[in-house]
Simulated scan of single mutants.
Amino acid sequence: MRSQSDSLLVLPLLPIFLIGVPPMLLFTLLGFPGFVILGVLLICVGLTERLEANSDFNQQIIVHGYARRSERMIQASNLHSAIRFATIIDLAGAGLIVVGLVGFFYLG
């Protein structure tokens, strides 16, 4: 005989459920404009990431001044990596905006 309930097996999945509920409600209650709002928020995140990367790069240059070639290459590589990530986030946000607008005007 079992001494534990089957519902205790679902308990570890509760945090995943609680994290996933707000986006589902956003899309359910707002529909395609919810995609537009999420796209705008993603673009804001991308722009923030880009600005922080430039700020970190400039701070390294100003504070530490002239550095060896290998250190400059590392700093430049970090800057380019952050800018690529920000560009991908911006493109994903723009894609969500396009999907939201197309869905709103053609299907809504």
Rank of each mutant, 00 (worst) to 15 (best):
V45R: 01
I61M: 13
P23H: 06
T48V: 08
S3V: 08
V36R: 04
G31R: 10
I88Q: 10
N54P: 00
M24H: 01
F35C: 06
P15W: 06
V36F: 05
E52R: 11
A53K: 07
N54F: 01
G65V: 02
R68L: 10
G103I: 05
M73R: 09
S3C: 00
A53W: 02
L9Y: 09
L9I: 11
F27K: 00
A76Q: 14
I37G: 09
P15K: 11
M1V: 13
L18W: 03
V45Y: 07
I83K: 11
T48N: 10
P22C: 03
P12F: 02
I88L: 14
L38I: 04
M1T: 10
M24S: 08
N54V: 01
G46A: 15
T87I: 04
G65A: 05
V36K: 07
L47W: 02
S70A: 11
V98C: 10
V40Y: 12
P33R: 10
V36G: 01
T28K: 15
L79K: 12
A92F: 04
Q59D: 13
S7D: 08
L29Q: 08
I37Y: 09
L18N: 01
F85T: 13
V102F: 15
G34D: 09
I62A: 12
T48L: 14
S81K: 15
I88E: 05
R72C: 04
G93S: 02
F105G: 01
S70L: 03
L101I: 15
S3E: 09
I88Y: 08
R50Y: 03
I97H: 03
S7H: 07
H80A: 13
L107H: 09
L42A: 15
F32H: 07
A76P: 00
S77K: 09
I16R: 01
N78E: 14
I19V: 15
F104K: 13
N58W: 04
I97L: 05
M1E: 11
V99W: 12
V36I: 15
G95R: 01
L79Q: 14
L8Q: 15
F32R: 12
L42K: 12
S55L: 13
L25V: 15
R69N: 12
H80P: 00
S70I: 08
A53M: 05
C44Y: 01
M1Q: 06
M1P: 13
A82Q: 09
L42I: 08
V36C: 10
P22S: 03
L26I: 15
S81Q: 13
A86V: 01
G100I: 06
G46I: 09
L38S: 03
L25R: 09
F105P: 02
S55A: 15
F35T: 02
A86M: 03
L101Y: 13
V40C: 11
V63G: 00
A92S: 12
F85K: 04
A67T: 11
P23C: 07
G100V: 08
L79H: 05
H64S: 12
F105A: 03
Q4Y: 05
L51S: 14
Q60E: 13
G95A: 12
L107T: 07
P12R: 10
I88D: 04
A76W: 12
E71A: 15
N54L: 10
L96G: 06
F17S: 08
I74S: 13
P33K: 06
L8K: 14
